Amino acid sequence: MEQNLSRSDRNDLRLIMLYGAVAAIAVLIWTVVSVTNLFPAGVFTPTVPLETGTVSTALGGGASAVVTEVTVAAPDTPLISVIAAVTVVIVRALTFFGVIACILALCRNISRGITFDRANSRLVSATAITLFVGTLIVQGARTFAINGILASLEHIGEGDISTPMSFWVTYFVAASLGLVAIAFRAGERLQRETEGLV
Rank of each mutant, 00 (worst) to 15 (best):
G60D: 11
G60V: 12
G60Y: 14
G61Y: 04
G61L: 00
G61F: 05
G61Q: 03
G62P: 13
G62A: 08
G62L: 07
G62Q: 07
A63R: 12
A63Q: 13
A63G: 13
A63C: 09
S64I: 02
S64G: 06
A65I: 15
A65V: 15
V66G: 09
V66S: 15
V66R: 14
V67Y: 08
V67P: 10
V67W: 04
T68G: 13
T68W: 04
T68E: 07
T68K: 11
E69I: 11
V70Y: 03
T71Q: 03
T71L: 08
V72L: 02
V72N: 01
V72S: 02
A73R: 10
A73M: 09
A74M: 07
P75G: 03
P75C: 08
D76R: 07
D76W: 04
D76N: 14
D76P: 10
T77Q: 12
T77I: 14
P78M: 06
L79R: 13
L79C: 09
I80T: 14
S81N: 11
S81Y: 12
S81C: 14
S81P: 12
S81M: 14
S81K: 12
V82N: 00
V82G: 06
V82H: 02
V82I: 15
V82P: 02
I83C: 09
I83Y: 03
I83G: 08
A84M: 13
A84C: 13
A84L: 13
A85P: 07
V86I: 15
V86D: 01
T87N: 01
T87D: 00
T87H: 05
T87I: 14
T87L: 15
V88Q: 00
V88A: 08
V88W: 02
V88R: 02
V89F: 09
V89M: 06
V89H: 05
I90G: 04
V91Y: 01
V91T: 06
V91R: 01
V91H: 03
V91M: 07
R92P: 00
R92C: 12
R92M: 13
R92Q: 10
A93M: 10
L94G: 02
L94F: 05
T95V: 15
F96G: 07
F96S: 04
F96L: 00
F97N: 10
G98L: 08
V99R: 00
V99L: 03
V99D: 03
V99Q: 03
I100Q: 05
I100E: 00
A101T: 05
A101Q: 03
A101W: 10
C102K: 01
C102N: 07
I103R: 03
L104G: 01
L104C: 01
L104T: 00
A105Q: 08
A105W: 11
L106W: 11
L106T: 07
L106S: 04
L106D: 03
C107Y: 07
C107D: 02
C107G: 06
C107N: 01
R108V: 11
N109E: 02
N109I: 01
I110N: 00
I110G: 02
S111K: 12
S111N: 14
R112C: 08
R112E: 04
G113C: 12
T115V: 15
T115P: 05
T115E: 00
F116E: 03
D117F: 11
R118H: 12
A119P: 00
A119V: 15
N120G: 13
N120T: 14
N120H: 13
S121H: 10
S121C: 15
S121V: 15
R122K: 10
R122D: 01
